[in-house]
Nucleic acid binder design. Sequence first.
DNA 1: GGGCTATATAACCGCAAGGGCATGGAAGCC
DNA 2: GGCTTCCATGCCCTTGCGGTTATATAGCCC
Lengths: 118, 118
Amino acid sequence: MAIPFDVLAEPSRRQILDLLLERPRLVGELTEHLGLTQPGTSKHLRVLREAGLVRVRRDAQRRWYELCPEPLREVDAWLAPYRRLWTDRLDALERHLDTMPEPPAATGEPDAPDGEAP
Amino acid sequence: MAIPFDVLAEPSRRQILDLLLERPRLVGELTEHLGLTQPGTSKHLRVLREAGLVRVRRDAQRRWYELCPEPLREVDAWLAPYRRLWTDRLDALERHLDTMPEPPAATGEPDAPDGEAP
DNA sequence: GGGCTATATAACCGCAAGGGCATGGAAGCC
DNA sequence: GGCTTCCATGCCCTTGCGGTTATATAGCCC
């Protein structure tokens, strides 16, 4: 599966995800927040749906859109090696400030910033 | 400062960053790896430069491009609340599979989403 | 200086994506 | 049944972006 960076490049789509982060929402509700027309919102929702980032639940004529954050793990995975670059810097700072008597000379896990274990 | 998602949406630009993750490189070297023309590479490098994701060091006629990962922290910050979501979701799924003897497996889907392939 | 290398910029093109309008289609309500 | 609500889809149109070719600029080497 491709990294959904192109899907996230759209500010409106990121805003949709941010809104769905709080709770599931109806299309009309999202349209109101986005300041777009309803078809425009539906178009973005279609893109998000096909990227697996949102999920829809039917309720009569209404559609409840809810978040599906799993594909974002691809983004997180791509970001991981870069994150090391600034966390290493932070680690160095912490070591300096702590003035640890003995640095962990053992070659164990240098750091695990977050869940990265598939 | 805007989140550089639009900059990262380009596969070639992500590839440039991946290449610069190993070591600084010359434009010609990047061009070779990308399979683009040299002006195309320079264009992408300009976008990355203006986003603060790379930095140039002049060396005679050559330009050494090196990585500047700081703006990626914005991406990481945006991603943070979602990251918490999928780890929670995995935990919930594990608990669910532990307690649930078997899924309903009903006949037919009462909640099938809209047709996907016209 | 002349020529070559390495890179940036300009001009141009093709195409796809975002946005709006109008319409279609399902499902409540009277 | 007819009207309305809520949403998806189908056409436009326009803009912007990625890509290429041609050209400009800077610095080395002979």
